[in-house]
Design a binder for these strands. Structure first.
Lengths: 347, 347
DNA sequence: GTGAAAGCGCTAACAT
DNA sequence: ATGTTAGCGCTTTCAC
């Protein structure tokens, strides 16, 4: 059906090797020859066959990314960073999104099949010992994004430090009775954010009431949902003592909490301050104080690392940690000079 | 380096053909034989090479999707629908996102290279005559998502009808002085939404003041940005006569407009009603009236169509049009029974 | 049900 | 600079 190098070799009066060279540009070809080849190709509508090239080269110029889900600003930004860097490098992107957590493993396996991609980016995927072992054994180029392991390249954020920063900020604002809205305990970043937060409290000798800690029981999205935050806040409000500050492990949860507070007739930040984590688009819009993660940059630099490892498989493992940056907005800054504005509206 | 069917054929004492059959499962293999093969494969850690399989089968079980950008709730949802359907069918997804509009063509070409994918989904990509011609000639399986062309399978939304619905709703609410916040004129859906809106006004004999029509001049995201909506609203407020309703061609623009209204001390919906288009997540959160598009479903059914066409290239072209569904929320429902709640907060 | 053998379309020594 | 040739690893007739 399709036209091959044989056809165009014949038409241009050269060998197939020359055609191949003319197209891959890896070996010099005399200019007049190249022109003949190219014009023959144009005449016949020839396009190199990628599958054949992949097999012969033993490389695909494709990398895979596996993410636990797609419906999340975080992953979209990470993927955007990845895609941008890849297209600069002439690579293509295979996206493996798991609909359910138990599917992550399957997607993972698929991405790693030989001949599929030259390397893989693993996003927010906790490394089991077994997976780590298999990966190490295969020698397959892999980099971890938003998770961390001694044996693999990675880029991640210092979640504990971020949690610390949230706590210190709230303490500095004079808050003392803290509520925590956490994701599913299976979420490693969630656990670390909590740990950091609690550490800072301990250092300040401020107690945290266990009745004011709410963990998501919902595995869906690991509990990172607006509804989850909303429900958690309502439960906290009705059950426990009254907090004067809420730290949510993610912005979406914080947004849900914000709504619950509003509905309960509480003012933010006057009655209750709220701090989230991520710095999604909407956070700037509603004026949510948060810890900003460099999502795009994480995708980009993770990709950079992967490209390096593909080029040089034996290079030493490199792990990069970004700091989350505290962005103070209206939901926590009691003394800010925007009294007239509805916090949900101020930029 | 890697283990091939030859290795496992030798170990299992069969021919390579049998190994191939055992793995592809397309031809029956005696049960004991299959067991021997599989255990040999396990021992040696064999995994079929995808590149070789692709070349031999002349098919990849991969489809590509080209989108103009990634940072958009719309595309994320569409892609999620695509990915879900594909993974059910055992296909993988190659994502081609263009950073800039002029790159769409390049991504498009790449996705279409022979041996790369078995078919392609084109999202929100206006069909030029030249592209259409090339595509038709190549016979490559393609389906259009969020755009439409007589010669190709497609799924799209009736944007004009949606615009109509917006206008009729606003008219029914007693509004008469309309402002329009539009994207870049290059956006085909934007043009159609406007057309529908104007048609409904004309049918109701209501005039539209040209001074109250704001088109984005920003090519970035085709003008579908919060900032764009914000700036447009401010400009409208300061320059033209005072409107009593705003129709924005997208929810993100509507959100920006909402903020500008707030800052200007105007109440919504009392002073100015606002209607958007898309029904992104935040719209439910802030109570924005909008036209809901079945984004996930569009991705899914577009993929369904593509899978069908791959299976049967000569089937008749099929075009599906979804209707946008009007979702009335607080920003337009003057007489709604939620007076106590801040519209930005009520669900 | 299984084996032999001829590709799939391109690349990369190696030779000239 | 160009041609020859042997793969790359798997699939798929066609016999048996």
């Amino acid at each position: 059906v399709s036209v091959t190098i044989y056809d165009i070799a014949e038409r241009a009066g050269v060998s197939i090797a020359t055609v191949s060279r003319a197209f891959s540009g890896r070996t010099p070809v005399a200019d007049p020859t190249r022109k003949r080849v190219m014009s023959a190709a144009r005449d016949l509508g020839y396009e190199p066959n990628v599958a054949a090239r992949n097999l012969a080269r033993q490389a695909t110029q494709v990398v895979g990314v596996v993410v636990p889900m797609l419906t999340s600003y975080f992953f979209m930004e990470v993927i955007r960073g990845i895609q941008d860097r890849l297209s600069e490098a002439g690579y293509d992107l295979l996206v493996y999104a798991a609909r359910t957590p138990d599917l992550v493993g399957r997607q993972f396996d698929r991405a790693l099949q030989p001949g599929r991609a030259d390397g893989v980016l693993l996003c927010s995927t906790p490394m089991t010992a077994e997976r780590a072992e298999r990966l190490r054994a295969s020698g397959y180029p892999v980099v971890l994004v938003d998770s961390d392991h001694a044996d693999f390249d990675s880029v991640s954020v210092d979640n504990a430090e971020g949690g610390c920063a949230a706590a210190r900020h709230l303490l500095a604002e004079g808050r003392r009775r803290f509520a925590l809205i956490l994701p599913h305990p299976e979420s490693v970043p969630g656990v670390e954010r909590r740990r950091g937060f609690e550490r800072a409290l301990a250092e300040a000798d401020v107690a945290l009431d266990p009745a004011l800690v709410s963990e998501s029981r919902d595995a869906e999205q690991h509990g990172y949902t607006r509804e989850g935050g909303y429900d958690a806040m309502r439960a906290l409000l009705s059950a426990g003592p009254m907090p004067d500050a809420v730290f949510a492990a993610s912005d979406v949860q914080a947004l849900g909490a914000l709504k619950a507070l509003r509905e309960a007739g509480l003012r933010c930040p006057e009655d209750v301050a709220v701090v989230g984590f991520d710095d999604i688009r909407t956070s700037a819009y509603v004026g949510l104080t948060t810890l900003s993660q460099p999502m795009y940059e994480m995708g980009r630099s993770g990709t950079e690392k992967l490209l390096c490892r593909i080029a040089e498989p034996s290079r030493p493992v490199s792990r990069t940690t970004f700091s989350a940056r505290l962005v103070v907005r209206e939901t926590s800054a009691a003394h800010t000079a925007t009294p007239a504005l509805d916090p949900l509206v101020a930029l």
